[in-house]
Nucleic acid binder design. Structure first.
Lengths: 205, 205
DNA sequence: GTCTATAGAGGGATAGAC
DNA sequence: GTCTATCCCTCTATAGAC
């Protein structure tokens, strides 16, 4: 099957054409979504012919899945690049939240990735689930265990608290940047981080 | 202009064809997004000919905008149907959060609406902003003023706290239902509501 | 392996009859 | 106002030359 072959070739990087195609398809799919993307424009952006694309990927759907999987893998590696969670909660947690939020607010490619993943989650549920399997779940487990291991924080339900923290900052990115809500209902990230930090501190009192 | 005419006719409901077209377009656009929607299928679902659609709406884009505006107006009325926020915070706030979350978790049409709004927020930023202008902003102001007026709650930044509350429950809906994350990283709504309630209570101590 | 050229289907939009 | 029939374009995907 073409998709399988493409994945293997790409993993061992025996062809640069595959990488050019994925780069071109990234531009196209992240800008226009799945249905709005054109294979002609992918070929143009990648600098190859359409037939070359179809020799490496089964069809438009296979290319889209290949791209999303590659992008998810890259994000996964970014998470792993983070240092393990250690130290004083009063310092570590605000820093972690602020860093995660700032990075998401600045990273336009991540925002486009998130937009497409949500927008196509009816057509491709399994692709949306990749985000949870490889990024949200590992990340939330690390934070949850950190919260649970620091009993002085006195957090009754660490797993649920992670959803509060994660939800607050992810939703801010979706609302302010992805949906362009900052012009209508603005909120500074510092104020959100400060409030979350304050809430955590209040638990230990 | 056809779109203006359509809006006026629809507002004074002088034609039932318009309503049928909007109904048909709702099925189509909410299921497939803007680019994935077909005007042929809209006509089929609405039970009218394609030419009739184009006699009431300028083009595909005008129909899409008309639909989104109508849906936003309906949601706006749902918000206004809610009783004003009064009473004991320990009772009112958990009830409000639980009711809002439950309604969003059960309302598949709202989830599809939200999915399309996010998915098309690059192509139609002004449509995504409707959600904040007519739903999120009025709602958040009511809650923020309620939090601020109850000084015994001792909340340092009510506006930011609203983002925590709103973000936590909206993100849960996006993650669990819209993106189908509940199979990978489940979270019961009760636990989230309980944690949010607990956090608010801790502020007053 | 990669290209050009094209097939074949379906898209949005409209002309003209009624 | 609404329909049928159709235009023209872009789309995905492939055949065949090199």
């Amino acid at each position: 099957m073409a998709r399988t072959k493409a994945s293997e070739i790409e993993r061992y990087s025996s062809s640069d054409k595959i990488e050019k195609i994925l780069q071109g398809s990234k531009q196209e799919f992240l800008a226009h979504g799945y249905a709005g993307a054109s294979m002609d424009r992918v070929a143009l952006a990648a600098g190859v012919s359409k037939a070359t694309i179809y020799s490496h990927f089964q069809d438009k759907e296979g290319l889209f899945k290949g791209l999303i999987e590659q992008l998810a893998r890259k994000r996964f590696e970014l998470i792993f690049g983070a240092q393990p969670l250690e130290g004083e909660p009063n310092i570590v947690l605000p820093q972690l939240l602020a860093k995660a939020l700032t990075q998401m607010l600045e990273d336009k490619e991540f925002q486009a990735f998130q937009r497409v993943l949500i927008g196509e989650s009816a057509r491709f549920p399994e692709l949306a689930q990749i985000l949870f399997r490889y990024i949200a779940k590992p990340g939330s487990e690390i934070i949850s265990q950190y919260l649970a291991s620091h009993s002085e924080l006195n957090i009754p339900d660490p797993d649920a608290m992670v959803w509060v923290l994660m939800g607050s900052i992810v939703h801010l990115v979706i609302a302010q940047e992805i949906m362009h809500g900052k012009d209508i209902l603005p909120m500074e990230s510092d104020r959100l981080i400060n409030s979350l930090t304050y809430l955590i501190n209040q638990c230990g009192k």
